[in-house]
Amino acid sequence: AGLTLGTTRPGNVFRALVEATAFGSRRIVEHMKGQGLRIDSVNAIGGISKKAPFVMQTLADVLDMPIRVVRSEQTCALGAAMFAAVAAGVYKDINEATRHMGSDIEAEYRPDEKRALIYEKLYKKYLELAKLAETIN
């Protein structure tokens, strides 16, 4: 995969970890799509999405879809409140609750076409390595 004992730049190791994580995320997304789900974009929450633009851009490039970072600091609590509002009859459904209570998007990462093409090739290599690893276990 290109990582050797001679790899000296910490940035190379960090990039490899970010890309491996993004490839794992892509595998999950592809599995979900294979089950009939339509996924056109991803909403990201939490610390990394707010503090690591490189990670988020890499994920957008690997997934080849937009990544939107939700502004709310308490996204899970906000979602629970939305469902509670629907259950209490304040809103007729979750779509209406989302329109009235939803959080703004603070950043959006769009895939770069050139990098997405490169990552497409690297993702195929990732899948080959995953198959090889399965035979070892």
Results as ranks from 00 to 15, higher is better:
residue 27 R to I: 00
residue 11 G to Q: 13
residue 117 L to V: 00
residue 39 I to C: 08
residue 72 S to D: 14
residue 63 L to D: 04
residue 137 N to Y: 12
residue 96 E to R: 09
residue 34 G to N: 03
residue 7 T to R: 06
residue 84 A to Q: 03
residue 96 E to W: 05
residue 33 K to P: 02
residue 25 S to L: 14
residue 67 I to Q: 10
residue 3 L to F: 02
residue 123 Y to L: 10
residue 56 M to I: 12
residue 68 R to H: 15
residue 15 R to G: 00
residue 23 F to W: 06
residue 52 A to V: 13
residue 86 V to W: 08
residue 68 R to V: 00
residue 117 L to K: 05
residue 40 D to F: 04
residue 47 G to A: 08
residue 136 I to W: 04
residue 116 A to Q: 01
residue 49 S to G: 15
residue 126 Y to S: 05
residue 120 E to Q: 15
residue 95 N to M: 10
residue 25 S to Q: 08
residue 47 G to R: 09
residue 48 I to D: 03
residue 37 L to E: 11
residue 29 V to F: 05
residue 45 I to P: 04
residue 121 K to W: 03
residue 127 L to W: 01
residue 3 L to V: 11
residue 4 T to R: 02
residue 75 T to D: 02
residue 27 R to M: 12
residue 66 P to N: 14
residue 42 V to Y: 06
residue 56 M to L: 15
residue 132 L to W: 10
residue 81 A to Y: 04
residue 136 I to N: 01
residue 53 P to S: 13
residue 2 G to D: 06
residue 45 I to M: 08
residue 99 R to V: 13
residue 115 R to N: 05
residue 70 V to C: 11
residue 99 R to N: 10
residue 74 Q to E: 13
residue 65 M to F: 04
residue 66 P to R: 14
residue 105 I to A: 04
residue 108 E to I: 15
residue 32 M to P: 00
residue 53 P to A: 13
residue 53 P to L: 06
residue 23 F to R: 06
residue 48 I to M: 13
residue 78 L to F: 05
residue 62 V to L: 06
residue 82 M to D: 11
residue 73 E to A: 11
residue 99 R to F: 12
residue 125 K to S: 04
residue 75 T to W: 01
residue 35 Q to D: 11
residue 94 I to H: 04
residue 81 A to G: 12
residue 48 I to W: 07
residue 89 G to M: 02
residue 28 I to Y: 05
residue 5 L to H: 03
residue 82 M to W: 09
residue 136 I to A: 02
residue 35 Q to C: 11
residue 93 D to A: 08
residue 40 D to Y: 05
residue 108 E to P: 06
residue 102 G to S: 04
residue 90 V to C: 02
residue 48 I to C: 14
residue 92 K to R: 15
residue 126 Y to K: 03
residue 128 E to C: 00
residue 52 A to L: 14
residue 51 K to V: 10
residue 93 D to M: 08
residue 69 V to W: 10
residue 1 A to T: 02
residue 65 M to E: 04
residue 116 A to F: 01
residue 82 M to N: 10
residue 47 G to H: 07
residue 109 Y to R: 01
residue 76 C to E: 15
residue 69 V to Y: 10
residue 1 A to V: 00
residue 49 S to D: 10
residue 28 I to K: 03
